[in-house]
Each structure stands twice: as structure tokens, then as C-alpha cells.
């Protein structure tokens, strides 16, 4: 082999990516979500006006991969902070939040519902990995029925701790929401759909229409106490059975 002459670049890194090493665990898909968001930002040419807002959780570390101005907030409070930034720049900034399931679906549920209901022109990237990863694998609002976690050691029992929260469908039911989808990144076909969904969610903000929301189904091998491949297959089977992929809302005007 003569080397360089025969090597062809088939996939480059996005312009918007910051090549900081992410402290994510083996088998975690959060870095793939970051790449997907970076590609969407590149495609839309919005890097110079994009500002990222993160809550507390593994998703917050992931934002370090996106080369834009960022701000970290208290747990669950990103939609309010994002509102302040959006209003500070009179709508000119393209503001997105990164939030996990505990951050958005539990402690910050009221914050996001009210931001969407106000019809804020914001975009939320929601990392659903069915539990709290950062604190060691506790039950979260999107933990599925029967799932064993460190705080549901006998499996999540709906009679005792309720039901898995379907955020993408809930967001779609609000009038201030312009776009809502749930996406997977488990294969190339789904990845292409995810990139398209993130672009659509940003486009609703750029066109000043309304809130854009994209839920990513992710893995958490250490939190789930599974090996990376087992975690990947469990996500494809158990999580995708509970959480249907699809576009739940896509409108050009909120009314």
C-alpha cells in the first residue's frame, strides 16, 4: 500500500464541532446527538448567531462539543434562561437548549411547558435515556414500566411511581409548539431523519414561527447496568416499543 494517495475522505467533522474530548461513557449516544446538532447548524449556516443553554446532567457536558457561545443553568431552568437570551437580542439570536429527561421531564417540566405555551421562538434538544445517568442510574420520568433502576430496584411500578412520560407528544399538544418529533440515531436511516428534524426545529425558530422540539432516544450503559451492545439493543427493543419515533407536529403558523 502506498498510503496517502489511496485514502479518500468520506466523512469530515462538522465546522461547528469543538474537538474537545467528551467525558461520555463507552456506548453513550450523547456525542452522536451533538454531532447531529452541529451538522444541522452547519447546514443552516447559523453558527455565528447560535447560543446554547444547558441544564444539569450528562447532556450539559455534551454541549461542550458544539462550538458556540454557551451558558449553563440550574437543573431544569434552561427554557427560562433561553427566553431571557432570546428577548435580550430581540429575537436575533438562535437559542437552543440541551436537556435530559430528569432535567426537562421532572424538575423542569413546568419551565418547558410554559416556554412552549408562550410560543417562544426557541429550539429544545431533548436527550431521553430513560433515567438519571449523571447521578448513577436512578429512575426518571421517562423510565419505562418494569425498568430496574437504583431507585426502582423492583422495577418501575406505575401504581407506586406512575408512567413513562411522552414528551414529544405532550409538546405537540401545546398551541405554542410549531414542531415536535421523536428521533432515533440507531442506524444511518434514522440518523438522516434526526438531522432533518433538528433542522426543521431550528427553521421554525429562524422563521419566527414557534417552539421547536426534538426528542432523541439515547443509551446509558452504566446507568442501565448493561454492556454497550446490550444497552444499544435494549434501546432498540424496549425503548422504541414504548416511545414511537415520528413527527408529531409541523406547522407554519401557531394558532
Amino acid at each position: 500500500m502506498s498510503g496517502e494517495d489511496e485514502r479518500k475522505l468520506i466523512c469530515d467533522t462538522p465546522d461547528c464541532i469543538n474537538n474537545t474530548l467528551l467525558p461520555t461513557c463507552p456506548g453513550c449516544l450523547h456525542g452522536v446527538v451533538a454531532r447531529c446538532v452541529c451538522e444541522a447548524i452547519d447546514d443552516l449556516g447559523i453558527q455565528e448567531n447560535a447560543i446554547g443553554v444547558v441544564g444539569v446532567g450528562c447532556h450539559a457536558m455534551t454541549a461542550g462539543a458544539v462550538e458556540v457561545d454557551t451558558i449553563s443553568t440550574a437543573h431544569g431552568r434552561a427554557p427560562g434562561v433561553a427566553t431571557g437570551i432570546k428577548r435580550a437580542y430581540y429575537g436575533e439570536a438562535i437559542v437552543f437548549t440541551f436537556q435530559g429527561d430528569g432535567d426537562l421531564g421532572a424538575i423542569g417540566l413546568g419551565d418547558v411547558l410554559n416556554a412552549v405555551n408562550r410560543g417562544e421562538k426557541l429550539t429544545t434538544i431533548f436527550f431521553n435515556n430513560a433515567g438519571y445517568g449523571n447521578t448513577g442510574g436512578q429512575m426518571g420520568p421517562t423510565t419505562i414500566e418494569g425498568q430496574v433502576t437504583t431507585t426502582s430496584p423492583y422495577g418501575r411500578d406505575p401504581a407506586q411511581s406512575g408512567f413513562p412520560l411522552h414528551m414529544a407528544e405532550m409538546m405537540a399538544s401545546l398551541r405554542g409548539c410549531a414542531y415536535s418529533a421523536r428521533v432515533g440515531i440507531n442506524n444511518l436511516k434514522n440518523y438522516a431523519g434526526a438531522r432533518k428534524a433538528v433542522k426543521a426545529a431550528f427553521q421554525k425558530q429562524m422563521d419566527n414561527i414557534g417552539y421547536g422540539f426534538v426528542e432523541f432516544l439515547c443509551t446509558c450503559p452504566p446507568g442501565w447496568k448493561k454492556k454497550p451492545d446490550e444497552a444499544f439493543h435494549w434501546m432498540e427493543k424496549a425503548m422504541m416499543e414504548e416511545y414511537q419515533l415520528g413527527e408529531f407536529k409541523n406547522v407554519d403558523e401557531i394558532t
Binding site: V53, I71, T73, A74, R77, G80, V81, A82, T83, G84, I85, K86, R87, A88, Y89, Y90, G110, D111, N114, R118
Partner: peptide, 26 residues
């Protein structure tokens, strides 16, 4: 200017956090 009636004082202060982070008077 911009006025937002928040859903709680918890969110008022977080909106202020975001605006203040942009270096404007809020």
C-alpha cells in the same frame, strides 16, 4: 423594550439570568 410575565418567580430570575448573561441592563 421587552416585558415577559413569567410563570413563577423561579422563572423570572432565570429569565434575568439569561438576559444579564448577554451584558444588557435587565
Amino acid at each position: 423594550g421587552e416585558f415577559v410575565q413569567s410563570e413563577s418567580e423561579c422563572t423570572s430570575i432565570n429569565m434575568l439570568y439569561g438576559a444579564a448573561a448577554c451584558g444588557i441592563r435587565a
